[in-house]
């Protein structure tokens, strides 16, 4: 059995830059869904402590070094960048999600404006500060959206929809560039 070759969701898509803003494929591994069982949050947090993480509040994340735990929905967060610590599985359902998501990054001065085409959310800095993570639609797709810096976002969509997400964000960026050029 030869080794199987891994392929990322957007392999072959070179970054796109318009108005100093770049759309690129990102990466994050491993991704483990952590879903605490009812009444076991204390023990979940105890198990997470060695990583320096705690279960995040809704729309938030906790991070320590390369490891982060981002809130992804009701009773659920994704542990990214570190394997699940021992003992966590006793108190939370753990599910490998590493391959389930395509990751896109959008960085630059018009990142916010670009996303406010397909995302029906108030992404103004005051309302959506860095390290905020939300579940939200990207047009007709479900997405996990994180502001990683004032001018940078990470967008996770179902892996099979990566090309649609890429196409829609590219179009939004192109349109903004054309608007800027003719303003």
């Amino acid at each position: 059995m030869p080794e199987l070759i891994a392929k990322s969701a957007l392999a072959g898509h070179a970054p796109v830059t318009r108005l100093q803003t770049t759309l690129a494929e990102g990466s994050a591994a491993p991704i483990t869904s952590v879903a605490p069982y009812p009444g076991r949050m204390d023990r979940v947090n105890a198990a997470l402590a060695p990583l320096g993480l705690a279960f995040p509040a809704p729309n938030g994340q906790t991070r320590q070094g390369a490891a982060r735990l981002i809130w992804t929905g009701r009773d659920q967060a994704f542990l990214i960048g570190a394997p699940a610590p021992d003992g966590l599985a006793d108190h939370a359902a753990l599910t490998d999600q590493t391959d389930g998501w395509a990751i896109l990054t959008l960085t630059g001065p018009v990142a916010e404006a670009t996303l406010m085409r397909p995302v029906p959310l108030d992404l103004r800095l005051g309302a959506f500060p860095p390290l905020r993570t939300v579940r939200a639609p990207l047009n007709h797709m479900q997405a996990i959206l994180t502001r990683t810096a004032p001018d940078a976002f990470e967008i996770m969509v179902f892996r099979s929809m990566a090309r649609t997400a890429w196409g829609e964000l590219t179009e939004a960026l192109e349109v903004l560039a054309a608007r800027a050029q003719t303003a």
Binding site: S33, A35, Y37, P38, R74, D75, Q76, A92, A93, T95, D96, Q97, T98, D99, G100, W101, F158, R159, S160
Partner: peptide
């Protein structure tokens, strides 16, 4: 789950895209 047995020890998540 949420309407009838929210207190049960059960969690589920789609892995359609993961495999």
């Amino acid at each position: 789950h949420q309407a009838f047995c929210a207190d049960w020890d059960v969690r589920f998540l789609s892995v359609t895209e993961a495999w």
